[in-house]
Design a protein around this nucleic acid. Structure first.
Lengths: 249, 249
DNA sequence: CGTACAATTGAGAATCCTCAAGAGCAGTGG
DNA sequence: CCACTGCTCTTGAGGATTCTCAATTGTACG
């Protein structure tokens, strides 16, 4: 089987528009593809890396979904992000070359591995790649800010709505339905991410169901009224539409 | 006054160990210093840049302190960071080349300006600089994660303690006292940053005062018991246990 | 078919917010 | 020097939201 031959990965990868190579020339993508390694597929609950591990590579989600979380000295966890295909993992490690969070697979999935040393060398050769790296890092910082806004100044119902809108946009960008999808994470993980408890998440989902905004059945979510979901997030400005949760064009 | 001649800035700057040039060779610092511009000093409440503005430069705080905040469509503000000398501003703009937050001066201060186009060119020439840029960006991402942890899973008292410890540490690194400093921001801004109200911040500071951990007088803060302040943040891993939270009746 | 885990639901409790009043401090002008 | 004004900060009472605890139901998987 030559399907996963590194040289052929990126030009043929369905994700390449949403992923690291976005904005590069054909020949530049080929150079990048040369340094991409395919890792063994992971099963649900497998760790991709542990907090504190030395970081020698960044990872791009190829399939499945992942959860990153920080564990403090008392053993408490805080989920800092969920990652879908095309999204980059490990950026927080660029500071001390050690991962500042752990990442586990929520379901079976796979990742592409990019050795840091290779990226650095390649950036010097391809100015576009360097700009792209900075862009991705800037995006990660900006999305961190969005999460801070979410946690700092939103009620439980607003957090729930924002979370669903974010997933909706990201699934939509990947070519899946943005109106109907499955949550790959349990309630407990959602709650942890949103700074709530699992019970509150459950209640808020039930409430949104009673309002007719969504239909929830266990892990399955269907959005019935996207405008109302947006209105819950930004009451006064809902009619103008809002782009921040969507991927850039 | 030739003091602020760009060419002489970094090698002579007292901040250079804590700032952008950290880790660079002498001659590399000189190359970097060539692209540094000094901006007009700012007064309290002056904007350094506005959310949505096109970003052509990054800024390093030279003196004073700054606050960055995101304004949503309904006009609500969320403070995403306070910045002290040596800290880098504008990194969130690398994604869309527009600032995703506004930044204002909390007191009179000044910044160094680094044109993005120059940084990109220089990174290709100086591999160490490129690594340093990535390191700073990784640090910004990691500190965003820390703020998420703070907002997601900490009580009002813990948030207050973490905030004070962070300032203590950063002032200490700058060569100021880590045990006694002035808050350059009003209670309202602290509250907004921590996802609380100004009244709650006030009460929590008063409580910490009653516990003898700190002495607060308006903007002035003195830390009397650093260990206990740390114990409030990480109860189980501190030797005293939870009773530190209980106020005397 | 039973077990273990995930999710729901409800009652009571704790934390933090809202609202309101007042105190402290800086700057201004008489 | 004193009031005056405006702002920040403090303090307290009551209330709303979310958490904790507990019981129950639903689902996946051996």
């Amino acid at each position: 089987m030559k399907l996963s031959s590194p040289q052929a990965l990126c030009p043929n990868c369905r994700l390449s528009d949403l992923c690291f190579p976005y904005g590069l020339q054909e020949n530049e993508v080929r150079l990048l593809a040369n340094i991409v390694k395919n890792r063994q597929p992971l099963s649900a609950h497998d760790f991709l890396y542990y907090q504190g591990d030395e970081c020698q590579s960044l990872y791009v989600v190829k399939s499945g979904s992942f959860r990153s979380f920080i564990t403090d000295l008392d053993g408490n966890e805080q989920t800092v992000g969920f990652y879908l295909p095309g999204e980059l993992l490990g950026l927080d490690a660029l500071n001390h070359e050690r991962f500042s969070c752990s990442t586990i697979a929520l379901e079976s999935g796979s990742v592409c591995e990019l050795a840091l040393s290779h990226i650095n060398k390649l950036c010097s050769k391809i100015p576009n790649l360097q700009i792209q790296v900075l862009r991705i890092l800037g995006k990660e910082i900006a999305s961190g800010h969005e999460l801070v806004v979410l946690l700092g100044h939103h009620s439980a119902k607003e957090r729930m709505a924002i979370f669903l809108l974010s997933l909706s946009c990201r699934y939509g960008a990947l070519g899946f339905s943005s109106m109907e999808f499955n949550l790959s994470m349990p309630r407990h993980d959602i709650a942890n991410f949103l700074g709530l408890t699992a019970e509150t998440v459950s209640c808020q989902l039930a409430d949104l169901g009673k309002l007719g905004v969504i239909t929830v059945k266990r892990r399955g979510v269907q959005i019935n009224d996207l405008d109302m979901l947006k209105a819950i997030v930004e009451p006064c400005s809902a009619k103008w539409g809002k782009q921040v949760f969507c991927l850039p064009e």
